[in-house]
């Protein structure tokens, strides 16, 4: 896996504690800015419903871990690991994300 980074939006395009979706090499990636300014990226696909909606979930914390809840059936996923905290063994892919100046960049998987 070689690391390539793609600028996807400005940091200011992200509201604190709200997600957006970006297209990265044809893949839907949900991007989140947490309360403390941290950036996280998960696949946008909700594995429970099969719909591409995770970017539209509510961002919060569970026992201190940053989370997003699926807007369809409210399963909660860790923003750090992609792990579903309500159902063992379910996990959504996590993507690399970083700040480059004022731009947000997402790792492109090849």
């Amino acid at each position: 896996m070689s690391a390539a980074w793609m600028p996807v939006c400005g940091y200011d395009d992200l509201l604190p504690e709200r997600g957006v979706c970006v297209l990265v090499a044809g893949r839907q990636v949900a991007l989140f800015r947490t309360w403390d300014g941290g950036l996280h990226a998960l696949d946008n696909l909700d594995p429970f419903s099969g719909a591409y909606v995770l970017s539209r979930g509510i961002v919060g914390t569970r026992k201190g871990e940053p989370t997003v809840a699926s807007p369809l059936h409210k399963q909660v996923f860790s923003l750090a690991t992609g792990r579903c905290l309500d159902e063992r063994g379910v996990r959504v892919p996590v993507h690399g994300v970083r700040l480059a100046g004022a731009a947000v960049e997402v790792e492109v998987r090849t």
């Binding site: 504690e17 947490t34 979930g57 509510i58 919060g60 914390t61 569970r62 809840a69 409210k74 909660v76």
Partner: peptide, 10 residues
């Protein structure tokens, strides 16, 4: 405490 969730925020 913490930063809320899909229960308390709405």
């Amino acid at each position: 405490q913490g930063r809320g969730c899909d229960v308390c925020k709405p």
